[in-house]
Design a protein around this nucleic acid. Sequence first.
DNA 1: CTGAAAGCGCTTACAG
DNA 2: CTGAAAGCGCTTACAG
Lengths: 332, 332
Amino acid sequence: MAGKRVTATQVAKAAQVSQATVSYVLNNKSHTRIPEETRQRVLEAARELNYTPSAAARALRLGRSNIVLIVLPDWPLGYAMSGFVDGLTDQLEQMDLQPVTRRLKQGVPVEELWKAIMPAAVLLLDRVAQGERQAMERSGVFVAHGLLWDAEHTDNPLLARGTLVGSLQVEHLAARGHRRLGYLAPVAEHDQVFSRLRIEGAEAACLDLGLDRPVVQHTDLTAAGVAAALLRWWDVPTAQRITAVCAYSDDYAFALLSAMRGQGLAAPVDIAVIGADDIPLGPFADPPLTTIDHEQDVLVTHLARVLQAGIDGDEPPATPPLHPGLVVRSSA
Amino acid sequence: MAGKRVTATQVAKAAQVSQATVSYVLNNKSHTRIPEETRQRVLEAARELNYTPSAAARALRLGRSNIVLIVLPDWPLGYAMSGFVDGLTDQLEQMDLQPVTRRLKQGVPVEELWKAIMPAAVLLLDRVAQGERQAMERSGVFVAHGLLWDAEHTDNPLLARGTLVGSLQVEHLAARGHRRLGYLAPVAEHDQVFSRLRIEGAEAACLDLGLDRPVVQHTDLTAAGVAAALLRWWDVPTAQRITAVCAYSDDYAFALLSAMRGQGLAAPVDIAVIGADDIPLGPFADPPLTTIDHEQDVLVTHLARVLQAGIDGDEPPATPPLHPGLVVRSSA
DNA sequence: CTGAAAGCGCTTACAG
DNA sequence: CTGAAAGCGCTTACAG
């Protein structure tokens, strides 16, 4: 029952070398020159015995595992965020790291978790107490802040992308001739980083294009809330009415389209609607949703490099340019 | 920099006992009677020093960690599955287990992963090679099969629920007077377990109610595919047309509603549509979607108990009755 | 170029 | 009731 784990010692015996040599070969420690012939013998034996080093032993010895802990926020991951995590998982896998995710409830300390796992690095996708971050770093864990709530975000690609999304939405609407825009934003606290960034991006684009700032309406994702937001936009003199809305996300865009139907309003003629995130349901909206696609690849690759550099104690690579793209369907 | 980890030895010193005693107290080893006074001193010292045992050391000693590895399938997790994982995470957390998830690409062996982590238990939410499962079990890891593809599913609550969902859909439609039903099912391989179960459930319910078996159309989640499926249902003599459709999921229901609009057909008058999963976007469909809610709590609690029992080597608890519920809106 | 040995921080039989 | 000690499987200075 309790299967016998294959250890380095057994590999050593099979390869007729010492256990230390096995370790050297398997970890590519070049500081000790191992003759090719010996190397091969060891590799061969390891393969034959189906040897996998004990992560626990290595972690105990080194003081940290090769796990990368991705801390997920305490709200349902949307399609975009899931894709992001999946992409990152792939990248990390290829770098011999073991990415692993864990959703953390608001307020629950990460401490027990990271001390238990002793990861090589932690990627925080949720806010975490200042003290906790420092505690991790003090004990040698590299901490990457997916969302750097309390600092300038110019260097954080995940956040930088947020403003880009808002700008793109506005640019497309402006190109279609719209001059008076609305922004439909969430109130839920967990969405506020992203929504604030997207609104900032939208405002900046409006400024660039000589438009008025978008009229922002905040609401939660309920039929009543969105309907009320719509009325606030609509209950003004006709000449002042907005003609297009940037929705914070495709979900909000769906909700707005639904509220518009309730009022006998249609997109894009009465109000053009553009979403963000490009969820799979987008083509099935009525009318099919125009939206922004995130183009995760660049971001994900970059973040994997940041993590690796952090673990190795190297300088972080420069942030690459991001290119979220427009997906034009019929709603705007 | 390399922060000094607090070890049991330091706690022992502070509490003026041996390190072994610290271990006994902290692990509640009752086989050795520790006087309350000593216990308190140890507990106090541990708290004061902010001691967290090294999982690596414990794992090395015990041959396994207290991590529960949840292996996610290689496709985007839907809303329902995400909720399930989140719920399970909460439960496991409370049992002093460390749930952690990892998506695994099709064909990539789990071996490296579980050998590295040496989890107390693994919950497989994806198909995995027979040999891999056995290898895990042989080395003492308890393996729970979230999806038992190759065996009877009567005992697997996750799968049992699948048939229940299909039955519920049919029962609601029948109660509304529908006699000729369609079932809109995916072709994507990853959805086939669930869709097969739901169809089985629907067929069983039809049999019970004296209806013909539902006319099943398989398609992928694209506008063209779903439109074609709709036409196949519709291009028959009027008297033979179906009057209602069970969609495999809310996503498919959205797609069908969209295709129906394209043909000038409306729900529920021309065709009533019922989905499954109760995604947040449901209320914003046109018309708002009638669907099935999974009621995750019972399932999640049960599964957590199964895992705990497996780890402790106890008998698994009996499967509790599940109660997915109807969410009636306007589409059916 | 290779091996013997220390030590990472635990748990648990065993001896006092 | 409590402590000294072995040992889990590694990595890595150190000695040969």
